[in-house]
Amino acid sequence: MVLKFETKWEIPYVHSAGEHGTKFFEALKDKKIMGVKCPECGRVLVPPRAFCERCFVDTTDWVEVSDEGEVVTVTVTYIKFTGLPDPPYATGIVKLDGADTGMLCLLGGIDLSDWKKVHETFKPGAKVKAVWKEEREGKITDILYFEPVEK
């Protein structure tokens, strides 16, 4: 038998969104999703950032992308994990029309109890659109989830 001692880390943080992120979050209030274009590789990057990681150059032009796009992938989680949403919930990547990067997001608006049906509805390439929060506050959660364009 050995003794055990309980300890805990409780450490709050306040993260900066940076100037590019600030513009992105402000635009969300108007249901607009903003990206930036890399002058070298031409990719439209969402979320926007001050430089292109691939080309190591400053990004230049701001571009508004659509709040509709295509599903890249999806998974439905059925187990409760601390700090994550109550199950079931569908996590996926959506590539917005006009963007060259995907967005890690929640997918919803359908019954999630049968994962195979969810994977069929949200199969790669399926068209989805953002469902916006009524009272937007300039946070990523202003986009509640993406739902099928055609139900």
Partner: peptide, 27 residues
């Protein structure tokens, strides 16, 4: 594990270690 994804854009999406592997499997 939850702190492994971006705190500003991605953490709300329910991505944990397992779901990130699961989205690879789906594709």
């Amino acid at each position: 594990l939850n702190t492994a994804v971006c705190p500003i854009y991605e953490r709300y999406s329910g991505a944990g270690a397992i779901s990130v592997a699961a989205i690879q499997a789906t594709v």
